[in-house]
Amino acid sequence: MDVIVAADRADLVKARDALGEGSLALVPTMGALHEGHRSLIRLAHEHADHVAVSIFVNPLQFGPNDDFSRYPRTFDADLEVCAEENVRVVFAPSADEMYLPDRQIGVSSGEMGTIAEGAFRPGHFDGVLTVVLKLLNLVQPDVAIFGQKDAQQLALIRRMAADLNLPVSIVGAPTVREPDGLALSSRNRYLSAPERATALSLSKALRAGAAEATPSAILRAARAVLDDAARLDPPLALDYVELVDPKTFKPVGEAHEGEAVLAVAAKVGTTRLIDNVIVPISG
């Protein structure tokens, strides 16, 4: 079947009606689709009868120093990916379609949106939650799929769905990595060969931390790798490495038991990368 492309709300209503009976899963993206996105789509097929993908580079989640203007836009290639993965509907609205010119109301990410990644990108998660809520309202899926690579985003979306009683199931998908361990990201294409070699320190640090058993040892092992990476050429410029509760994203202490998220963010050259891994802590 051909992919139905909807550029506005009227098209989306028609596309939704054309699906007929059956459940619908939504995979929200900003385009520049790669194997990680394909894995999200494939997981979506496991959870619903039909799959929709949204492609929208959301201006609200980019700060003044972020890369909104250079964010890759590859719509024709993205559409081919969707066709290959049996996506039924692609919702690709413009910014004018998504936001009124005098927009006044959005979603607040609360305290959880100001810590960890939120401390380095003020307002970012407010923009993420606002666009996700709008997409869920417009597409009306039964299930929505988000990647674990953006662990804090996933946690916040789950919290928003619970707090606002949204009639949708939020499903997290495992991080997909290159053979060398680098987490797949649309921003990886910006890395030169030497920068990519340095960027591998992120996943190396996570593996080193995950091999330890206590919170202090986990952080110590990860930081040692990242300290070494700061002396590479080109160097890695660390924003943070934190061990946090997967539901609240607050730092965990030595007495923590259960799962924790070891999260890291850093710049290599002009490219900012994030990564994380879930680690079990027995206390």
Rank of each mutant, 00 (worst) to 15 (best):
D163C: 10
H50T: 01
I105K: 12
D66Y: 11
D180G: 14
S109C: 15
F75A: 03
V264F: 04
R121F: 13
S109F: 03
A221I: 04
A255S: 06
S23V: 06
A266Q: 04
A260C: 09
P246R: 09
T214D: 05
P194D: 05
A52I: 03
L219S: 08
T175N: 12
A217Y: 09
R42P: 01
I157Y: 09
G31N: 06
V139M: 14
R223C: 10
S94K: 04
P280T: 05
I281N: 07
D163W: 10
G123R: 15
A217P: 01
V128W: 03
L12G: 03
V3C: 09
Q152Y: 06
P215K: 05
R70G: 03
V5G: 01
M1R: 04
R231L: 14
T74Q: 01
D49Q: 12
N165L: 14
V176Y: 08
A224N: 14
S94R: 07
V171A: 08
L40W: 10
P167Y: 14
S216E: 13
R88W: 02
R196T: 05
D239V: 04
D228H: 14
T248K: 01
T29S: 09
L164P: 07
P234W: 14
E242P: 01
P251D: 00
A205E: 00
I170R: 13
F146S: 10
K14W: 07
D150I: 06
H45V: 02
I274H: 01
V51N: 08
E257A: 12
V5D: 02
P167M: 13
I218G: 07
I4P: 00
A155Y: 04
A266D: 02
Y71P: 05
V53P: 01
R42F: 00
I4T: 04
T175C: 02
D66G: 10
P194W: 07
R38Q: 02
D233T: 15
L182M: 14
Q104N: 10
V252H: 05
G36A: 07
P234H: 14
H50C: 02
P234Y: 03
R158G: 11
A197Y: 00
P215C: 09
N165M: 15
A119I: 12
L19Y: 08
V139C: 15
E257H: 11
N165A: 14
I115K: 15
A48P: 07
V90W: 03
R231C: 13
F91G: 02
H50L: 02
Q61T: 09
A208N: 04
L60R: 09
E254A: 08
K204N: 05
A221E: 03
P246N: 08
P174I: 08
A15V: 05
K14I: 02
P174S: 12
D102L: 10
I41Y: 04
G22V: 14
A52M: 14
R196S: 01
S216T: 14
G106T: 13
P167K: 11
E85C: 03
V261A: 07
R73M: 07
F68K: 06
D233V: 13
F56H: 13
D76K: 07
E46M: 11
K267A: 08
Q152G: 12
A222E: 06
V90D: 01
I4N: 01
I281S: 06
N65F: 07
S185Y: 01
N165V: 12
A230K: 15
L206Q: 05
V252L: 04
V131M: 10
A213I: 04
Y190R: 05
P235Y: 13
R187I: 05
